[in-house]
Design a protein around this nucleic acid. Structure first.
Lengths: 348, 348
DNA sequence: CTGTTAGCGCATTCAT
DNA sequence: ATGAATGCGCTAACAG
């Protein structure tokens, strides 16, 4: 298998020749079959098989100004929070012939700007960003590029273009209200250092009406960081009764650390998370969390982009998907760990 | 902000005019600065700023036959096993100006073929596949495309092109040998239904020298499926002492289910996983697992592609990265749960 | 070191 | 329903 012939792959020209038609007819037979007679279509199809033709999307995109690509920007792929969104974005778009091209910003505005510039250079038909675009220069550039942009997983009154998300301040307040209602006196926070997590914390503190001991860990969060965060909190405030975490991963780590120290959860320490990870409902104890419709965000973002590509007017370019606090065992009140989850939702 | 002017974005032509040079000189000033005088370079740079120029990579790629894209194919983004690989692939390539374009096969050979065809249509400079390419037609097409291909996370003597991975049969055998050495009599398997997991199971059974009760769950695996798998196994073989799982996620679910039934792990039930997930070392009990260098796979795959792009001869186009069985608390022998991990590695 | 010429492969005019 | 001409924006090859 060493003979890798540098065979110039078949072009539409070759297909047309094989089918005995002009290149443009071949092009139409493939792209707009309705504009071509049935016979011609069949002949072109046969020629495609024969030549092993695969279209060159670079060339097609250059001419048609539709690259059939959508850029998907995340802080890092390892931030599992966004995976369901990227997954459903990719799947929804793939069904329409679009592919997702991936960019990572590492929570860094400069990297973000560089990544977005590179993406714009590829002339994608849309750009989906997790979070808001931080760099002002990038925002301006995106606006002027004319490319449909969807910011996600956050909320603002002044998006670059379109938006599908929810308010982190509100999430924090809802969680704070819940903590206040439960009357825990000694409360702590374990949070990632990213902007959205810090916004949730701010909302939480505002709702509680007082500052709380806080352990900040670098993003992306991990189980290990959760364990460390609790160790740190316990070191600083030994009598702590409840911890609000910026992700279910951190919450899980906090719980593991608590159990490893012989504490009972929730009796000795109540713990809440954010994101409603797949595992959270099935752990022991199950984790109280804030549910966000990650796949829905991806699906809606894809829909907005596709609508714009089709030239349709987008009715609601800014969507607040809200969230839902799901109470589970990790903050359960009585000794009824198997009680059905209490739900408290909050939308726009 | 409604005045989205359909401003044709600046082209190299505009930059050249602004800089008072020919387009090709502008092109060189940006792409091969060494070929251009310092003065010219500065003038072009200034013109770029002035015009807000962003290159059109579609056009550049069409002409130069270097798209600066690499296709990354996974079964699904939600298979967390591959995330570190995709992440390091993306990061390594980004450092050289390449972006990753994502494809999902859903463990389906037809989808895989379709996805690969689409990818080839984009003329990527490389294709990285997790697993081996299943479809023969796709294999043939890839070979003839001349695009560098790296298959990963598996092993074969007849790769499409290049390969970075390890033998799942060997992983299964190593785990089986370990189980045999531990002399557990009643052993079970909880496994995902994907081909590689089943290969590991086959190796495991071969090493044990006897069939074992097996619960097969659909991929991708989840904590919940792990819980169900143990429930199923216990229903069929109540006296089971040890369970070999096809992923740490399943293993975690098995452990949670066991604990929820009042069983002690590992005293009443020993559990092993695969993949050495980030959390596995930090759980209670920590999970015995098979470590694989996921990020390394991505890095090496990127390196192979980049080497090919530079026209370098690739010394070792087939790399067996091996694996390492890491013994942790979930299969610990004595009552020394904090004993350092016993490691048993196995390479080519 | 810089410029001229000539496409890359396709799809959008406009014609027939 | 089909075709001819043209150019998308850029860069390889050659010239100077």
């Amino acid at each position: 298998m060493k003979d890798r012939a540098p065979v110039r792959s078949a072009t539409l020209h070759d297909v047309a020749k094989a089918a005995g038609v002009s290149p443009i007819t071949a092009s139409r037979a493939l792209g707009r079959p309705d504009l071509v007679s049935e016979k011609t279509r069949a002949r072109v199809q046969a020629a495609v098989q024969e030549t092993g033709y695969l279209p060159n999307l670079l060339a097609g995109g250059l001419k048609s100004r539709r690259s059939l690509m959508v850029a998907g920007i995340v802080p890092a792929l390892s931030v599992t929070q966004f995976l369901p969104t990227v997954q459903s974005l990719t799947t929804t778009l793939a069904a329409e012939g679009y592919q997702v091209i991936l960019g990572q910003t590492a929570y860094d505005a400069e990297r973000e700007e560089a990544v977005l510039n590179t993406m714009i250079s590829r002339r994608p038909d849309g750009i989906v960003v997790t979070g808001l675009v931080a760099s002002d220069r990038a925002r301006e550039r995106l606006r002027r590029s004319g490319i449909p942009v969807v910011e996600t997983w956050d909320f603002t009154d002044d998006p670059v273009d379109m938006l599908v998300g929810f308010s982190h301040d509100r999430v924090g307040r809802a969680t704070g209200d819940y903590f206040r209602a439960r009357k825990w006196q000694r409360v702590g926070v374990a949070t990632g250092g990213d902007p959205r997590a810090l916004m949730r914390r701010a909302g939480f503190v505002a709702a509680l009406g007082r500052e709380v001991p806080t352990a900040v860990v670098p993003a992306p969060s991990s189980l290990e960081l959760g364990r460390r965060a609790l160790a740190e909190l316990l070191g600083r405030s030994p009598g702590i009764e409840a911890v609000c975490c910026s992700s279910d991963t951190l919450a899980h780590g906090v719980i593991v650390e608590a159990l490893s120290r012989g504490m009972r959860v929730p009796q000795d320490l109540a713990v809440s998370g954010f994101g409603d990870a797949e595992a959270s409902a099935h752990l022991l104890p199950s984790i109280t969390s804030v549910h966000v419709d990650g796949p829905g965000i991806g699906r809606l973002a894809a829909g907005l982009i596709l609508a714009r590509c089709r030239g349709e007017a987008v009715a609601r370019p800014v969507v607040d998907l809200g969230f839902e606090l799901i109470e589970r065992q990790s903050t359960a009140a009585g000794a009824a760990p198997d009680a059905g989850p209490v739900r408290a939702s909050a939308k726009a």
